[in-house]
Design a protein around this nucleic acid. Structure first.
Lengths: 240, 240
DNA sequence: TCAGTTATCGTCAAAGTGACTATAACTTCC
DNA sequence: GGAAGTTATAGTCACTTTGACGATAACTGA
C-alpha cells in the first residue's frame, strides 16, 4: 500500500490547517431580514464587509467557539434564540494566506439584540441581507450567507424556529411578520393564525394582550415545546 | 484590544489542526440498512470498527476529499447515488493524538456496489447499522453514524433521494422497500404506489417490466428530475 | 387448474389548506 | 363623540391529500 493511500494513519507531517468558525447571525428588524457583519481592518479584504469569525481555541469544541464568537460580537451574555451548525467550507484557496477550514454557524436572534460597539474600527452591525449580498463580502462569505438564508427559509417551513426571531413574548402578527420577511411573501393572516394556533405546542397563550397601533389588541404568546411542524407550512404564495 | 480577542487576524502561531473527512456510506441490502466500515489497524482503537476517512489533501476541497475517500474504499470510478456534507465534528479530544476537525459526509449508494477488498487487513465491509451501533466504534464515530442515520431518515421524507439507494432501474416495490428498511416501518403498497406515481418527476416509466418471484410483473422506472417531495411522505405508520 | 403472491387501480371518509365572510376591539379623524 | 379605518380572531366552503381498504391483474408453484 503506498503511503499516500492511508495518510490518516501517518500523523507525522499531516497537512496543518487553521480551524475557524464563521457566524451568520440573522434577525428580522425594520421589516427586513438582516445579518450581522463586521468591517475588516486587515488584509486581505481590508475595508470589506465580512461575517464575524475567529479561530477555534485549542480547548473548546466547535459549538462553544461559535457561541463565544457570537457573544464577542454582540455583547450578550448567552446567545439567545437559536444557534446551529450550518456547513463547513474548506476550498484550498478560500483564504490566500493559508489553508483555512471554516465551520459556519447559523444564528437566529431576536431583534432587540444590539451588536456591541467596540473600541476599534471593526464595528459589528446589522445590515439587510440584500445589501450584504450585493456588496462585496470577504472570502467566500457571500456563498456562506446564501447557504444560510436558504437554510433559514427551509427551517421555517418544518420547524417552529421562527419564534427564535421574536422576543420571549410575541403576538401571532409578530410571528407572521417573521415568515413574511424571511420568505418574502404575504401570508393570509387568518389562515396563518389558524395554523399556528392549531399546532399543539407551537405557541402558548400568556393571557396578556398588547395594543400596538390601531386595531384590536393581540394576544401575547410564548414559545411552546413543539419543535417540528407537521404538516409543514408552505411558502408557495404569490405576493399578489 | 487584547491579542486573544481577535486571533483570526494573528496568523502567525494559529493553533494548527488536522482536517479530515469521515464517510458514512449507507446502503440497503438484505432488507437491512447497512453502513460501510473499516477495521482499524493502528492505534488508537486498533482492531475496532471505524468509518472510512482520511486527511484532506492540500490541493483538494472537502467534497473532493470525501469523494476520493469513498472511491478508495469502494473501488468505484465515480461515487454514484448521493454524497452530501453531513456535519463537522471537532471536540478537543475526539482524537487523543492531536486536534482533528473532521468533516463527515453522508453517502447513499445502491446495493450492488461492493467495497473493494484490499490487500491489507483494513478491509471495508457493509455491516447492518444495528450491529455498527452496538459494536464499539472508534473515536466519536457512533455519534456520527447516529446523526447520519437521522439525516437519511429525514431526507427520505421530503426529497426523492430514496432512489439513490436503488440501481438505475427499479420497481416501485424496490423503492418502497428502501423506505421500509430505512424507516423501520411497513408502508401500504397501494398508497405508496399512488404517492410516488402521482408525484411529477419522481419516477419515469421505462416501459419494461421485471418478474421477481411470484406475483404480477412490476414496471421498471428510473429516477426523474424531481428532487423535492411536496407534500412530504410521512413515516408515522405503526407496523401493526 | 387452483391456490398463493405481488402489482396496480379504485373508493371513501377524514384531515388540512386556500380563499373568503363575519365580528371584535382598538385608534384616528372629523 | 361618532364614523371610518385597522388589526385580531372565529368561521365557512370547496378542493386536495391521505389512510384504510376493496377489487382486479398477472405471475409462480403445487
Amino acid at each position: 500500500m503506498p503511503p499516500s493511500t492511508r495518510p490518516a494513519d501517518d500523523l507525522a507531517g499531516f497537512p496543518p490547517v487553521a480551524a475557524t468558525v464563521d457566524l451568520v447571525a440573522l434577525t428580522v428588524r425594520d421589516d427586513a431580514l438582516q445579518v450581522l457583519v463586521v468591517t475588516r481592518t486587515g488584509d486581505p479584504h481590508a475595508g470589506e464587509l465580512a461575517l464575524p469569525g475567529g479561530f477555534v481555541h485549542p480547548d473548546e469544541d466547535l459549538d462553544s467557539a461559535a457561541a463565544r464568537v457570537l457573544v464577542e460580537e454582540t455583547g450578550m451574555r448567552r446567545p439567545p434564540g437559536h444557534l446551529e451548525q450550518l456547513k463547513t467550507y474548506g476550498a484550498p484557496n478560500r483564504d490566500p494566506r493559508l489553508r483555512v477550514v471554516s465551520v459556519a454557524y447559523l444564528a437566529m436572534a431576536p431583534t432587540r439584540l444590539d451588536p456591541r460597539v467596540r473600541g476599534d474600527a471593526a464595528v459589528a452591525a446589522w445590515v439587510p441581507v440584500e445589501r450584504a449580498l450585493t456588496a462585496p463580502l470577504a472570502f467566500d462569505h457571500t456563498t456562506i450567507l446564501t447557504d444560510a438564508i436558504s437554510r433559514a427559509r427551509s427551517k421555517l417551513e418544518y420547524t417552529s424556529l421562527a419564534a427564535a426571531f421574536c422576543g420571549p413574548e410575541f403576538t401571532v402578527s409578530n410571528l407572521r411578520r417573521v415568515y413574511e420577511v424571511v420568505w418574502g411573501v404575504r401570508l393570509d393572516p387568518r389562515n396563518f393564525h389558524r395554523k399556528v394556533s392549531s399546532t399543539p405546542g407551537f405557541i402558548i397563550d400568556t393571557g396578556h394582550t398588547v395594543i400596538d397601533g390601531p386595531g384590536r389588541p393581540a394576544a401575547l404568546y410564548r414559545r411552546g415545546p413543539a419543535t417540528m411542524l407537521v404538516p409543514p407550512l408552505t411558502r408557495e404564495q404569490p405576493d399578489t
